[in-house]
Computed example of a mutant assay.
Amino acid sequence: MEYLLPTLREKREVDSLIRDTIDKVVVLRFGRSSDSVCLQLDDILYKSARDVSRFATVALVDVDSEKIQVYVKYFDIAFIPSTIFFFNAHHMKMDSGSADHTKWVGTFQRKQDFVDVVEVFICMILECPVKV
């Protein structure tokens, strides 16, 4: 069975997903389906979606849609793909080694890299003990 990723093209769709998803990480990939790097990331997200489905919801956001531009400007989507994470309608910040702590810019090298990032967010939320 295929696990399809929804593509959001309207602000109200993004608003609804962020607002109505409770106790799961919301992963929004901002990009375009015609970009080769976005397609590489989409493949990783697609392959990971089932594995993280218990604790995350993944969706694609079409940056070329006119009805999405408010989010493109608000999150300063200058480079694609950019991936933004939310939990219970709160934007999750991250330190990925870049100056921008609001989003992941670029793709992940492997499926496990993406799963690891989502798991870090879950541990932050659940306040998992640090293993030494």
Rank of each mutant, 00 (worst) to 15 (best):
Q69V: 11
R29S: 11
D35P: 02
D43G: 14
S53C: 08
V61W: 15
V61G: 08
K24A: 13
V37P: 00
L60M: 10
V25E: 07
D42S: 11
V37I: 15
Y71H: 02
K47I: 02
K24I: 11
G31R: 14
S33N: 14
D51W: 00
I22N: 04
L41H: 06
F55Y: 15
V27E: 08
V37R: 03
L28S: 05
V63E: 05
S65K: 05
L45E: 03
A59Y: 13
D51Q: 11
E66W: 04
C38N: 08
L60F: 08
F30C: 00
D62W: 00
V58T: 11
I68S: 04
V70F: 03
L39E: 06
L28V: 04
D51N: 05
I22M: 03
R50K: 14
S33H: 13
G31Q: 13
C38T: 03
D23Y: 09
L28Q: 06
D23C: 02
A49Y: 12
L28I: 03
Y71Q: 05
F55W: 09
R32D: 01
K47R: 15
A49S: 15
F30P: 06
F55G: 08
C38A: 04
A59H: 11
Y71V: 07
D20P: 02
R54A: 05
A56M: 01
E66K: 13
D64H: 12
D20N: 15
A59Q: 09
L41C: 06
I68N: 13
D64R: 12
R54N: 09
I68D: 10
S33V: 12
A49M: 11
R50A: 04
R29T: 10
L45T: 14
K24M: 09
Q40G: 00
D42V: 08
I68L: 10
V37Y: 08
Y46S: 04
K47P: 00
S36F: 08
I44V: 15
A49L: 09
A56N: 02
R54I: 03
K67S: 14
V70N: 02
Q40I: 03
T57Q: 12
V58F: 06
S34E: 08
S65F: 05
V27G: 10
D20G: 11
D64S: 12
C38P: 07
A56Q: 05
S36C: 04
S33K: 15
D23K: 13
Y46T: 05
V37E: 07
V58R: 04
I44S: 01
D43V: 10
T57K: 07
D35V: 14
V61D: 05
L45F: 15
S48F: 13
K47M: 03
V27Y: 09
S48V: 12
R29K: 14
D64M: 12
S48M: 10
L45Q: 10
L28A: 07
C38M: 05
K24P: 06
C38S: 13
V26Y: 06
K24E: 15
E66L: 12
S33G: 11
G31C: 11
V63M: 13
F55I: 14
T21L: 06
S53T: 00
F30G: 04
E66Q: 05
R29E: 14
E66Y: 08
L60C: 03
V70W: 01
R32E: 01
V27T: 09
S33I: 13
V58E: 02
Q69N: 02
R50M: 04
R29I: 10
V27D: 03
L45N: 06
R50W: 04
A59M: 05
F55D: 07
L60V: 01
V61T: 14
